[in-house]
Amino acid sequence: MKLNLQAKNILFILLGAAVFSFGLVNFNMKNTLAEGGVTGINLILYNLVSFDPAISNIVINIPLFFAGWRFFRRNEFIYTLIGTFSLSVFLFIFQHWITFDFSLKHDLLLAALFAGAFIGSGLGIIFRYGGTTGGTDIIARITHKKYGWAMSKTMLVLDAIIIVLSLCYLDYRQMMYTLVAVFVGARMIDVIQKGAYAAKAVMIFSKQSDQIADQIIQLFDRSVTLIDGKGGYTGRKMNILYCVVSPNEVFRLKSLIHEIDPNAFVTVNDVHEVFGEGFSINDADNGLNQRQPKKNNE
């Protein structure tokens, strides 16, 4: 099977592994906080028998690679290998070569927030560019393929078991701060995977759809998509307008719609990522390029 690896993806996976490792070494390990997945097992071994996580990460993942390689597409598998081995390399670097003093045992809440922010950001970058760090992701793929178990549920159960096992070296106070770190990390992963900028998707149901569409094009420098619709109760056909705008344009748009048709029905939904001709995350004012209105939504 032909590989289609991209240098950009590999570079960002390496960056994500570096950010992840920095957070794990300087905030989890130095402040005795746990973590889920294979990383959590690495921390258990580190705190109980001083086994270097840079080594245990490879030792644990190698048999998982042999068991699960056929459940990955080839590109995914190569990116996962890069993510896993680079994670071990950066763990070694931040433990032994580039060290910092981030001991925050006097303020475990701050330590947990930093741990979640760095680990979540690192994993989010790795996931966004097609990689993983191996571990429970491989186990989840195997159980999904063989037994039909949902991957998300399998990973949740494994993470919960590993975090509970971490009580062998944690007290309940450290456990609660670990849960804070895990929660923050999960939110960071979502933000990075979905995009930090949230645009708004607006659907407009109105008898004056043509007039509203014209005003959006003229006043907002955007276009709209007209979708054929039919009222379920009245059976009357109408055009449904679909438009994507930045958050700071929503109030103006609703005011415009209400002015033209006070009886219009409008829904507004979050759009976590926008790309394509006419939209880019480069505009300093609102995050969206507003040029080329006739192609934005068509």
Rank of each mutant, 00 (worst) to 15 (best):
M1E: 12
K2V: 12
N4S: 09
I13K: 00
L14Y: 03
L14P: 02
G23I: 00
M29I: 02
G40M: 03
F51G: 01
P53I: 08
N57G: 07
F65Y: 15
F66R: 05
F66T: 09
A67M: 15
G68Q: 10
F72Q: 01
F72L: 08
R74P: 06
R74T: 13
N75K: 08
E76M: 08
Y79F: 04
T84W: 01
S86M: 05
L91D: 01
L91E: 09
F94G: 03
H96R: 10
W97L: 15
S103M: 04
H106G: 08
D107W: 11
D107I: 06
L113D: 05
A117C: 14
G122R: 02
L123Q: 05
R128A: 02
G131S: 12
D137W: 10
K145N: 11
K145T: 08
G148V: 02
M155A: 03
L158G: 05
S166G: 14
L167P: 09
M176R: 08
Y177M: 11
V180R: 02
V184P: 04
M188A: 11
M188S: 00
M188P: 02
M188G: 02
Q193D: 04
G195T: 10
A198K: 15
A199P: 04
A199W: 05
M203Q: 14
I204N: 06
S209K: 09
Q211L: 15
A213W: 12
Q218P: 02
D221K: 14
R222G: 13
D228P: 14
G229F: 08
G231P: 13
L241C: 08
Y242I: 07
C243P: 06
V245C: 05
F251A: 14
L253W: 05
I257K: 02
D261L: 08
N263G: 04
F265I: 10
V268H: 06
H272W: 13
E277G: 06
S280H: 10
I281N: 03
A284Y: 11
E298A: 12
